[in-house]
């Protein structure tokens, strides 16, 4: 069983990396990019029966820093 955790910066938290990527896209001549936010994706290969609550705990305790980040769990 697989789960995919997507971690993104909270709204209002400055994202210097997203900004740099935005600049680089503009430098390459791509117009019409309004904003870029960078995050990360973590794929978990889990034992069958791992509960949603277990994955939530993983996110809160380690995978995301909830001071600055949101997380989204998708089961594959």
């Amino acid at each position: 069983m697989k789960a995919r955790v997507t971690i993104t910066l909270k709204n209002g938290v400055l994202d210097p990396q997203g900004k740099a990527i935005h600049h680089a896209l503009e430098g390459l001549g791509f117009g019409g990019v309004n904003d870029v936010r960078a995050g990360k994706m973590i794929e978990l290969d889990l034992a069958d029966g791992t509960s949603d609550a277990d994955i939530e705990e993983m996110c809160k305790k380690l995978l995301a820093n909830t001071v600055i980040e949101n997380y989204r769990i998708e089961r594959a």
Binding site: P16, Q17, V67, I68
Partner: peptide, 17 residues
């Protein structure tokens, strides 16, 4: 110490990258 929760807040990437 911030990640441990002994201090509040977080240290993010420098604004100038």
């Amino acid at each position: 110490l911030t990640e441990t929760g002994l201090l509040p807040g977080a240290l993010m990437r420098n604004a100038g990258i």
